[in-house]
Amino acid sequence: MTLRRRTLVLAGGAGLAFGVGPARAALSPALVEAVQGWAGSAAPPRAGRVRLEIAPLVENGNAVPISIKVESPMTAADHVREIAVFTEKNPQLDVVRFHLVPANGRAEVATRIRLATSQHVVALARLSDGSVWQHAVDVLVTLAACIEG
């Protein structure tokens, strides 16, 4: 038992290093396609401005708190229009899409999601100038959301 627990801790540590390290694993083609479908024909999403906060090691995939913060003054001329979240290996890659307006004052949203297995979670923001920004986090899930019944 002790050995198993230690293995898990090690795996968690590895996952953490993975998520923040520069040599991040590439996103799956299906995820890239889903992201492009949402982002449209504009330039591909750039890294930065968006911050997805999610625990790198999740014990229960049934309700995983996430929050997304976007650097934006939220003025009429420069604001976040939409925030989208996608997963890599859930049965359906779409998770949620938030619609914002300048009256929000801050581009910060939070919710709770399901994760079927360890995977990348991606948050994207579409700004009023049409640019799209993204942040991907690699998440290790020890107990998956029950999709098997």
Binding site: A63, Q92, V95, V96, R112, R114
Partner: peptide
């Protein structure tokens, strides 16, 4: 504010 919600929301 509005949200389009999919099955992956808890």
């Amino acid at each position: 504010f509005a949200a389009d919600v999919y099955p992956a929301v808890a």
